[in-house]
Amino acid sequence: MGSIGETTLEIDLAALENNFRYLKSKIDPETKFLAVVKAFAYGSDMLAIAQKMENLAVDYLAVAYTSEGVFLRESGIKCPILVLHPQPANFEELIQHNLEPSIYSPNLLKQFLQFMEEQGKLEYPIHLKFNTGLNRLGFWENDVDFIMEQLKNRNEIKAVSVFSHLAASEDPQEKEFSQRQIRSFQKISEHLNGKLRYTPFRHMLNTSGIINYPEAQFEMVRSGIGLYGYGNEEKVDQNLKPVASLKTVISQIHRIEPNESVGYNRAFTSEGFRTTATLPLGHADGIGRHYGNGNAHVMVKGKEAPIIGNVCMDMIMVDISGIDCKEGDEVLVFGPNRSAEAFASSAQTISYEILTAISPRVKRVIINS
């Protein structure tokens, strides 16, 4: 390893393309593909990821909030963008930037219809979200008649898709529950299609759904975590490449004597002679306090160096005893050779959390563009 000079998140667009092509290989050629780029593209770089996906001819992008979609539009992204969790306060911005809202409740449907009537819009694209068991957002199955009553003789909006979300697609022990969700969604979409004068396309599968339930791919699938290199299963991860690599450097090395403490609240006390390294990375950068006190480690010269003591706001200290290294050397937190899932699981959390937690102040570097 050389030295990167500062804490850096490397974003590998070749890895992103590999993951996209692998996931595409699991579905029919005619099935549409939606790339989820919410939360700064899972903590990486939303614009770089969206541009790459657009270049790869992805059919849709999805964001959580209207502001994320506005940013992409103002940065030149042209492809359709689904806003998964829009709020009435953002309707004006949403339509100004040609963003397509998920409509997930009776109240939201009525408010959006009224707003579109006031704007004089015709057949504005929306996506109807149904709850089939995740119990987070969505209409219920018995809301179909209400939806049709609202849409009757109205042409301000057009439901271009109907969709739902699997709750446990990665868990083989929940196969029966997932299949029940799929059957429920089929019933809902058939009921809806029987009443509409047109046929919306359907989508339900997330990354693990693509792998485990390809028979339910319908007309489109959605992938978030899989695009970034994590498939929620070891056998799947072997075919994926982590897009983000978090690297930092050794700022200072200390020689610690027996019974000396390290860090705030003296959370670590040495039982013998130890060598520690201080790194410019802390909980303000996304490395939460739960990674401290030996719960997680970083890689120094290919060897494990446990985080000792409490994680500070801007620094962590690691035990490098027995590792031949020097100040300025590069340190790997996670990346292709040490996954974010492995790092996260050491502190009883998941890759999603550590990836999306990396602070905007950490320098992003795009590679293999």
Rank of each mutant, 00 (worst) to 15 (best):
M1K: 13
T8H: 01
I11H: 05
K24Q: 10
A35R: 00
A39Y: 05
Y42I: 05
Y42F: 11
I49D: 06
E54C: 09
L61K: 02
V70T: 10
V83W: 03
L84E: 02
L84P: 03
F91G: 08
H97A: 11
E100P: 04
N107S: 14
L108A: 03
N135T: 07
V144C: 12
K152Q: 12
N155Q: 15
E156G: 01
H165Y: 09
P172Q: 09
S178R: 00
R180S: 11
S184L: 13
H191K: 15
H191R: 15
H203F: 06
L205Y: 01
N206L: 07
P214E: 06
E215Y: 14
E215N: 10
G224A: 09
G231Y: 06
G231L: 07
E233V: 06
N239W: 04
K247L: 10
I253V: 12
Y264D: 12
N265I: 11
A267L: 13
A267C: 09
A267W: 08
E271N: 14
T276M: 07
A277H: 13
T278K: 12
I287R: 02
M299K: 14
M299N: 10
P306T: 09
I316D: 05
I323R: 05
F334P: 05
F334N: 02
R338L: 15
R338C: 08
Q348V: 02
I350D: 11
E353I: 13
E353W: 12
L355G: 01
L355Y: 00
R364N: 00
